[in-house]
Design a protein around this nucleic acid. Structure first.
Lengths: 292, 292
DNA sequence: GATCTGTCTATTGTAGATAAAAGACAGAAG
DNA sequence: CTTCTGTCTTTTATCTACAATAGACAGATC
């Protein structure tokens, strides 16, 4: 295969979701916009919808014949892009276990294990190297530096610098800046989840990312915002594979977030700094506990 | 061609330099160590040295027959690795002119212009993207964000945070830490160059990088140290293509460095911060002047 | 005349192949 | 018994090819 058609499959599935509720389909360019794909892909989707008898399609006329059923969807395994698959597979290896710092990483071996070509693995490793967990020996292998306490400390040191500055910048956003509305919506979601924390504590991971990214954005500095990718990926996988005390940890973090959010809304620099520091301190401790 | 033999050619040239002074050759593993290449490459070098009649070689016996002459060397164009060629060629395009922010970057076109395959260009762009000057639209082209004043300001904002912290950390290095000796050697070189600044001001670029990298290293934080790559590459090409007032600018920067170095040696936090801030301020202004 | 569709072209994402370079191992030489 | 060389295998760096996807343009439809 030269290229996976995951863009098509994923967009197709999302199109089926649209059809669940709506009984009509927009024009090709409009659909492309909605699904975030090109018209070429839209036409491939329409062609398939017609093939499986979901619609009748002739030029502008698109008649929905029936509601989609489970069997119409592509299996979710087939809708992940190759880079997502490689990332997950790689992160599992290095965060979830058995990967000693100093270990060599072999492109060919990794590619075979994941069932993909070497080019994709290589490109993934290059992209991933900016996270500071691996390093290349030119003309030779990659070296795993490992998810060690040093890594966690270096990461959080920079994070603290960046987030304190971003939080301070947040206080100076215009009153009508959309970030304030987003902040309220995030706060509301926190309260909702906390009210039913036993069942919904797993939603914290995504919320956490949304909140901190919003704060970092206030810096209006691409390097600070981009750096948040590293935090996000580390915490994302960390939450996924380190479940000890998850409910309790998440509840505590959400309480801290709410204090932090109130501080931001007060625009009082000292209060913001205090709330931010407190939260970052406990985030650092959480992360440190899971290093090897 | 599957792979350029630039490693071989470059190591071969460096081996000739060794032969200029020395009249004997060490064992294969030792030579490999000296040149930083594998024994496979060392043997390829020895084979060629024999072919062009520079040595006689039989097992452990290596007899140098004559001194190398200019014609023995590979031309320098052939010793640059592909990624260096791509980097230079790309930086010239975006820093030296005619590249508007928002412009699309076409992998195939770039590859053709540089005379290389698309894979190498792609990998370069991925590596380069961490510098914040370009951005990828998935399944589509790259977008040039451009060497704009915003870029320069965002870059220097982070740089200032990092360097102030690193400089402060420098003051706490052990007395016997090798960085102190390196600092002295850097200071001496500054004085040397300043004494003959009209002829030697071009050496500043390299010296600047050496000095600031030394300071950043004191942070012992991989993210801070890695970030210095961005500064280094930007300033490197900036010095190369923006020659207006170069002599004067460099002289001023060197004076500032000397004050900064003295401050570091005093280990007085306030004095360090002051010297560091002054220098960073003028570095920022220099950079800003050359943005478009 | 604005927006749509049919058709065509250009570009990206990925696999597979191959030369260069690294590196492993056994036997030779000190 | 340590270090070297001869030989062989493994891995990386790079090219080329090709399907998926994006995107451009002209004529059709509202």
């Amino acid at each position: 295969m030269a290229k996976q058609n995951t863009v098509f499959k994923d967009a197709f599935n999302r199109c089926l979701v649209l059809l669940e509720t709506s009984s009509a389909l927009a024009s090709e360019p409009e659909l492309g916009n909605t699904l975030g794909v090109s018209r070429t892909t839209v036409r491939a989707i329409l062609t398939r919808l017609e093939e499986i008898g979901l619609i009748e399609w002739s030029k502008r006329r698109k008649v929905v014949l029936r509601k989609p059923v489970a069997a119409d969807y592509f299996p979710t395994e087939e809708t992940d892009s190759l880079s997502e698959i490689i990332e997950r597979s790689f992160m599992r290896r290095i965060l979830a276990g058995g990967a000693e710092p100093g270990m060599q990483i072999n492109e060919l071996e990794l590619a075979r294990e994941i069932g993909t070509g070497t080019t994709s693995v290589r490109e993934f490793l290059i992209r991933f190297s900016r996270f500071g967990l691996i390093e290349k020996r030119p003309n030779s292998h990659w070296v795993l530096k490992g998810f060690t306490p040093e890594f966690a400390l270096e990461l959080t040191e920079v994070r603290e610098m960046f987030e304190l500055r971003s939080a301070a910048a947040f206080a100076h956003l215009q009153d009508d800046h959309p970030a304030w509305a987003e902040l309220d919506s995030i706060a509301a979601l926190h309260r909702e989840i906390l009210a039913d924390v036993d069942n919904r504590y797993r939603e914290f991971s995504e919320l956490d990312e949304r909140f901190h990214l919003l704060v970092h954005r206030a810096s209006r500095n691409r390097f600070i915002i981009d750096f948040y990718d590293i935090i996000a990926i580390v915490f994302h996988y960390h939450y996924q594979w380190n479940k000890t005390n998850a409910r309790q940890r998440n509840a505590r973090a959400m309480e801290e977030h709410l204090v932090y959010i109130e501080a931001l809304k007060s625009r009082d620099p000292a209060r913001i700094e205090d709330a931010c520091r407190r939260h970052l301190k406990s985030a650092r401790e959480t992360l440190l506990q899971s290093t090897n």
